[in-house]
Design a binder for these strands. Structure first.
Length: 186
DNA sequence: GGCTGATCATTA
DNA sequence: TAATGATCAGCC
């Protein structure tokens, strides 16, 4: 199977298998439980292979939104993580699924997430969206999230002036999810 | 190997 | 069309 053409398939199969019901809305996957479902790709050594996508960014809404009301926090305060074997050489049907577990960030993790989020939100609010790179953030990072690099979406400046920007999304660094998985297995 | 920026399938 | 689900590919 061509893995290049099956990127989101694993996640969607899990949603189907576990009965997630939010569809492609900007809300937690399990509406009644307020729990977000995420798969984590693991290599043979049991460490995460990739960073984990959290959500897309609504540029205009970042400016006057507090951390407690942010989409990132709403999604991350309770997550059902499901580790999945993801070596590129293993065919999709042969991949093993690990035991899923419900996770909530510890106080330290919340503090780290919040610090990164507030710094990034401040940059967005100041109209520095094009200066944000994936280098920023200790645990949370901002990366392109678009069909291709040429895609632009209309957004609003802090002054209310329209401008074009590349769509972005929030991601959890692999080092962060590695700690989560390690703690869950301990 | 780790990280960053780019890209792909499917659905409402 | 735009949002969801992530992984790919190349530079360091």
């Amino acid at each position: 199977m061509d893995q290049r053409r099956a990127k989101g398939l694993v996640g969607q199969l899990m949603e189907l298998a576990l009965g997630a019901d939010a569809g492609n809305k900007d809300q937690p996957d399990f509406l009644g439980l307020d729990v977000e479902l995420k798969t984590i790709p693991l290599r043979r050594d049991g460490r995460p292979k990739e960073s984990t996508y959290v959500c897309s960014i609504s540029l205009p809404k970042m400016a006057d939104r507090e951390w407690e009301d942010s989409i990132v926090w709403r999604k991350l305060k309770r997550v059902c993580f499901v580790p999945i074997e993801s070596e590129r050489a293993i065919p999709l049907p042969d991949r093993r699924v690990g035991g899923g577990f419900i996770w909530s960030p510890t106080d330290d993790e919340v503090a780290a997430l919040r610090a990164d989020w507030e710094r990034l939100a401040a940059m967005i609010a100041r109209g520095q969206i094009d200066e944000i790179t994936a280098h920023l953030g200790d645990v949370l990072q901002v990366r392109p999230k678009a069909p291709n690099a040429a895609a632009k979406r209309m957004t609003l400046d802090t002054d209310g002036a329209p401008r074009w920007a590349n769509p972005r999304g929030f991601y959890l660094r692999a080092r962060f999810t590695e700690q989560i998985v390690a703690r869950a297995l301990a």
